[in-house]
Nucleic acid binder design. Structure first.
Length: 456
RNA sequence: CGGGGCUUAGCGCAGUCUGGUAGCGCAUCUGCUUUGGGAGCAGAGGGUCGCAAGUUCAAAUCUUGCAGCCCCGACCA
């Protein structure tokens, strides 16, 4: 019975590591190709390695962050009622001919031929494929609304990839697709994602501003970009400070209540907010000067309602309550999860390195044994490593035979939210030191208090 | 897609103009001394100089071609 229970109730998952056994190729100097701070820090902290222009290998430290971001995205997508699946990266050209986008998409699409000379492509997005999956199985209005999403690698053959994973050619994206019987239903679905996105970015420790956006080549009627503020951002943004003061939808918001979601949508979209393409000088000038925010931002999410743009040419219909075939109304919703890794660093770093928010830090705690081989520091470090790990924290134990200065520099660079310093000096008084990365604040305390402090 | 630049050891660079046995710092390895903010000394290993062709007794260096990468501008999760 014990082993049977073990199958269902595994202990809290933690991924603590000893640094001496980990793969963390840190660079001391800045690689010359890296211009912006997130790119520099990602390379220096051993998170990624470039393999070709705009194409990166994710090393263990980078992958951890990517996974933690995806976990939060999943939780919020699921909470809102979306259902996860996984579509392939390679698609058939025929599918794209149905929507007319095979010719329209241009050189951004990576086109491939297989051994039988069949035309294939590496998917830059999945509207066609999800529409094909939908129409094959969903026949009745009773199965609506439906929102399907996946987190999958995309490829867009950008003319000029740059800024590391911020603007890569290969990138990881969460894309969701909603299906509704009519426009009213589709707007409800749109607002579900709108609220889910606000919650997602807030949990990532980011302030994201939804901005009315141009619907662009995807086409359609209603679209918002979610932009986080960062001085290195590619987009110029103008906003009423009021939008920064809105509250995030609570965890128990009723996603089935169109009214509740509409309230959220109105609250967040009533204050002025626009990127330069949609900017209205007059409307912005009408805002009291002290409330005008003019800044730069990074686009981390984009949502669209586009009606029957794909369901019409691709014949995605359901039988409605009146017995008639009706084209479904669709929307698509993207979050660039690999871009978010860089965006988070842009939004949170200092001279010494990255400052991760608690929710996505690759490790919660960097545990520094300042004198390897010293019986007291070795034993205390081992005790802390076990105790913190047992309480569900991801601990990176720096057990390398290095000098203290090296360990401090490493810990600051990789940006764990907490550092625990175990050295002979403080240990002589029975104390260890707990340092908060973000503030630099240090507390000298007992081992027991350190554990309490970190698990509070 | 226009304009500019780069390619020499894991990272950062010198050497190229004026051809003559490939060097520096950091990193790595060994030993000793060190140990609370990227240590010191001594020693060691590591490079088909982006690729190809040419000129030459001799090419990292000169010539030609190709490739990869980066930056600045117009487009995008």
């Amino acid at each position: 019975m014990v082993s049977l229970f073990g199958c269902f109730l595994s202990p809290p998952e933690t991924y603590s590591m000893r640094l001496s056994r980990y793969f963390l190729p840190i660079l001391r100097d800045n690689p010359k190709e890296a211009e912006i701070v997130s790119h520099r820090l990602m390379l220096r902290a051993g998170m990624v390695r470039q393999e070709a222009a705009g194409i990166y290998a994710w090393l263990p430290m980078g992958l951890r962050v990517l996974d933690k971001i995806n976990r939060i995205i999943r939780e919020e997508q699921n909470r809102s009622g979306a259902v996860e699946l996984l579509m392939p990266t390679i698609q058939s050209a025929d599918l794209w001919r149905e929507s007319g986008r095979y010719e329209a998409y241009g050189k951004e699409m990576l086109r491939i031929t297989d051994r039988h000379d069949r035309e294939m492509l590496f998917g830059p997005t999945n509207e066609e494929m999800i529409t094909e999956i939908f129409r094959a199985s969903v026949k009745s209005y009773k199965d609506l609304p439906l929102n399907l999403y996946h987190i999958q690698w995309k490829f867009r053959d950008e003319v000029r990839p740059r800024f590391g994973v911020m603007r890569g050619r290969e990138f990881l994206m969460k894309d969701a697709y909603s299906f509704d019987l009519d426009q009213a239903g589709a707007v409800h679905s749109y607002n579900r994602m709108f609220a889910a996105y606000l919650r997602t970015f807030a949990r990532l420790g980011l302030t994201a501003i939804p901005m009315r956006a141009d619907t662009g080549p995807i086409g359609g009627d209603l679209s918002h970009e979610f932009i986080i503020l960062a001085s290195t951002g590619e987009s110029e943004v103008f906003a009423d400070k009021a939008v920064l003061e809105q509250t995030t939808p609570p965890v128990d918001i009723d996603f089935d209540s169109a009214e509740a979601l509409d309230k959220v949508f109105k609250a967040w979209t009533t204050p002025y907010a626009a990127t330069s393409e949609m900017h209205d000088e007059k409307a912005f000038a009408a805002i009291p000067a002290e409330r005008q925010v003019s800044a730069r931002g990074i686009e981390v999410g984009h949502i669209f309602y586009f009606g029957t743009k794909y369901s019409e040419p691709m014949k995605a219909t359901v039988t409605g309550p009146d017995g008639r075939e009706t084209q479904v109304h669709m929307g698509s919703y993207g979050i660039g999860s690999s871009r978010l890794v860089a965006a988070l660093i842009e939004a949170s770093h200092d001279e010494a390195g990255i400052v991760w928010p608690d929710s996505v830090a690759p490790f919660n705690v960097s545990l520094l044994n300042l004198k390897i081989g010293d019986a007291a520091t070795d034993e205390t470090s081992a005790t802390l490593y076990k105790a913190l790990t047992a309480r569900g924290l991801d601990v990176l134990y720096d057990d390398r035979d290095e000098r203290p200065g090296t360990k401090f520099a490493t810990a600051d660079l990789i940006g764990s939210p907490w550092q625990v310093l175990v050295g002979p000096k403080s240990l002589a008084e029975g104390k260890v030191e707990v340092k908060r990365r973000k503030t630099g604040e240090r507390t000298l305390c007992s081992v027991e208090d350190a554990v309490l402090m970190l698990t509070a």
